[in-house]
C-alpha cells in the first residue's frame, strides 16, 4: 500500500457520486487516471485491505432490525459453534472477543420478530444461552479511519 492507495481509501470513505462515470470523477479529484483507480481499487479489495466497496444500507430505515448478541462459548466448542452461528444468513458480523462472553454477533433481519426467531434457532442448535442486546439509544456512529 502506497500513498496513492491511502488517498484512495481516505477519499472513498466519503461520498461516492451517483452520476455517470463516478470513478472518473473520483480519479480526477485524486489526479490519477480512471484505469489506474479501478486497478488499484481491485487490488485493495483482492488483498482485503478493503472489506467491501458500495452502498451501506441502514436496515432499520428499510423497516428491518439489527441486534448485537453474545454467547459464552466453551473453548472446546468454539469452532463448532462458529460454524453454526455463521451459517445463518441473518448473521451479518461475528467477532471473537477476549472475554468469558467470547462470541459477539450482529443480526440484521427484515423484521423485529426475526431477531427473536433467529436467536431462538441459534440457542436451540447450539444448546447455549443467547444474550440479545439490541441498542436502546444510539449516541454516535462513525469514525473515519485514516489510512
Amino acid at each position: 500500500m502506497d500513498d496513492l492507495d491511502r488517498q484512495i481509501i481516505n477519499t472513498l470513505q466519503g461520498n461516492f457520486p451517483i452520476e455517470d462515470h463516478p470513478y472518473q470523477i473520483i480519479a480526477e479529484q485524486l489526479g490519477m487516471s480512471e484505469d489506474d483507480l479501478l486497478t488499484r481499487l481491485g487490488i485493495l479489495l483482492e488483498d482485503k485491505t478493503l472489506i467491501r466497496f458500495g452502498p451501506m444500507y441502514d436496515i432499520q430505515k428499510l423497516g428491518g432490525s439489527f441486534s448485537l448478541c453474545a454467547i459464552r462459548v466453551p473453548s472446546e466448542r468454539f469452532e463448532e459453534v462458529t460454524r453454526i452461528v455463521n451459517s445463518f444468513l441473518e448473521v451479518a458480523h461475528n467477532y471473537e472477543r477476549d472475554h468469558e462472553f467470547n462470541m459477539w454477533y450482529v443480526l440484521a433481519t427484515e423484521s423485529l420478530a426475526q431477531i427473536d426467531i433467529t436467536n431462538q434457532a441459534i440457542a436451540k442448535k447450539t444448546g447455549l444461552k443467547v444474550y440479545n442486546m439490541p441498542k436502546l439509544q444510539e449516541f454516535f456512529v462513525g469514525l473515519h479511519f485514516e489510512a
Binding site: L12, D47, Y57
Partner: peptide, 17 residues
Amino acid sequence: KSGQIRRIGAVPNHYKL
C-alpha cells in the same frame, strides 16, 4: 437522502490499516 443508504463508499479493514 432518506438515510436508507448511510453512505456509498469503501469499508476498510482496520486491522490492515
